[in-house]
Computed example of a mutant assay.
Amino acid sequence: MKIAAIQMISTPVLAENMATARRLLQEAAASGAKLLLLPEYWPLMGLQETDKVDIAEPAGEGPMQDMMAEMASKLGVWLIGGTIPLQAAQPGKVLNTTLVYDPQGQQIARYDKIHLFGFSKGEESYEEARTIVAGNQVSSFDAGFGKVGLSICYDLRFPELFRALGTSSLIVVPAAFTYTTGQAHWEILLRARAIENQCYVLACGQGGKHVNGRRTWGHSMLIDPWGKVLDVLEEGEGIVSGDVDESLIASIRESLPALRHRKL
């Protein structure tokens, strides 16, 4: 199956970002991709961290969810919707949520980001817990070629999450990695997750300078189960794509049965 990741530079305007996502999803599907991945925070990179609270939708309804369901059905693809803000029980906070739609436009999986990013160095500071409620359950789905494990951005630093998912054929990582941390660790961590889980990793980033002044690392990429980078887009808007080869997964796991050799 051909799969693709959509790299964006989201703005503070929801309508602009929805139009961009539609256009790039259509381009990716036209190239033959049957599983599409949007980045974290694709609907909005706000001027204030609280802006996402204002557009948060209740689970199951709203323009962001309607658009994703419509695009999955219209294009006949599996659509992994990056992340959108869903309403949380705590006032002033949201859930940072990945929703998955099948080619009929039905929502078939959901994952609420478990690990909330915190970083402070010089003038650069982030603390997602101020506006986001953490999830508490791992999630995956079957896309016809094997299990697809869901994760979001900062989750990448916690290998135990991927072990908890069990044996996967593909791990997806929608993200908005900062330029600072991405430059240092993004590719290393992604390749490590692919190697240790002997599966494909499709990572999808925000990739450039945003209106709010934030700069994201981009470098959306597809990595094979041996840790080889098959495609990468460094910065800017665009698409990363490639094929999932089930026979390669089986061959690597047979010749190097590390998953069967686990002790802990």
Rank of each mutant, 00 (worst) to 15 (best):
I3P: 11
P12C: 09
V13P: 00
A15T: 12
M18E: 14
A21D: 06
R22C: 09
R22E: 14
L25F: 07
L25N: 04
A29Q: 05
A30K: 11
L35F: 01
L35S: 03
L37T: 00
L37Y: 02
E40A: 15
W42Y: 14
L44Y: 03
L44V: 09
G46Y: 04
L47P: 00
Q48K: 14
D54W: 04
A56H: 10
G60H: 05
E61L: 02
G62C: 04
P63S: 07
Q65M: 08
M68E: 03
M68F: 13
A69Q: 10
M71H: 02
S73L: 07
G76S: 08
G76K: 03
W78T: 01
L79E: 05
G81S: 15
T83C: 10
T83S: 15
Q90G: 00
V94A: 04
T97K: 02
D102Q: 11
Q107R: 15
I108V: 15
I114P: 03
H115F: 09
F117D: 06
F117G: 01
F119Y: 15
S120H: 11
S125W: 07
E127D: 13
E128S: 13
V133S: 13
N136R: 13
N136V: 02
Q137N: 13
D142G: 04
D142T: 05
F145A: 08
K147W: 02
V148Q: 02
G149W: 03
I152D: 04
Y154L: 04
L156W: 07
L156P: 04
R157P: 00
F158C: 01
F158A: 08
E160V: 05
G166V: 03
S168G: 01
I171C: 02
A176P: 00
A176I: 00
F177E: 09
Y179G: 01
Q183I: 01
A184D: 04
A184L: 14
H185N: 12
E187R: 15
I188T: 14
L189A: 14
R191L: 01
R191N: 06
R193D: 04
I195Y: 15
N197R: 12
N197Y: 03
V201K: 11
L202N: 10
L202G: 09
A203H: 01
G205N: 15
G205H: 05
Q206N: 11
G207K: 07
V211A: 15
N212S: 13
R214F: 12
R215I: 09
R215E: 13
W217C: 13
G218M: 05
H219E: 13
H219Y: 12
H219T: 10
S220Y: 06
M221C: 15
P225F: 07
P225S: 08
V229P: 11
L230N: 01
D231E: 08
V232D: 08
L233A: 06
E235H: 14
G236P: 13
E237G: 00
G238P: 12
I239Q: 12
D243K: 12
S247Q: 13
S247G: 00
L248W: 02
I249P: 09
A250N: 06
R253D: 06
E254F: 09
L259P: 09
H261M: 14
H261F: 07
H261Q: 14
R262N: 02
L264C: 00
